[in-house]
């Protein structure tokens, strides 16, 4: 039984794996661009997680079809609408982070975090 429960949630475990790999990638890597990529992994994992919440097996596009009045026949549109906003937020954070990277590269001439930290302390 517990095995069955485990496998019914396997998609959530995969998303958790994606999220955690992003988290550790961010802690592990010294290179600032790699940190940004790991951060994007985390954000994507969260978007997938939300989209799954609106998912129903056999659910159709949430536009009313004449004759189908059962709520369970339609996918839940709310998480998708929310994630449109979250995607915009992710886009702007990525954009602004890339801008910072250009400034950092020009000023420090490196993108290695521990190197910059060492020079900051001087």
């Amino acid at each position: 039984m517990s095995v069955a429960i485990f496998f019914s949630y396997v998609i959530f475990w995969l998303i958790a794996l994606l999220y955690v790999s992003g988290f550790f990638g961010m802690m592990e890597h010294n290179h600032l661009v790699k940190k940004l990529m790991a951060m994007n992994l985390m954000q994507t994992a969260v978007i997938l997680f939300f989209l799954l919440l609106g998912q129903k097996i056999g659910g159709i596009t949430p536009i009313a079809v004449p004759g189908i009045t059962d709520i369970d026949a339609y996918a839940n549109p709310l998480p998708q609408a929310l994630m449109l906003t979250a995607i915009v937020v992710n886009l702007s954070t990525t954009g602004i982070a890339l801008t910072f990277l250009i400034v950092i590269k020009k000023f420090w001439n490196t993108l290695d975090e521990s190197e910059i930290m060492r020079r900051m302390d001087k």
Binding site: M39, V46, M120
Partner: peptide
Amino acid sequence: GGGRAAFAAYRYLILGTVAATFYLI
């Protein structure tokens, strides 16, 4: 605030965004 500030802001951005994903979860 310049080059040092850009690096500080970058770290702030990374941590702040991770915090935002926590909040979203």
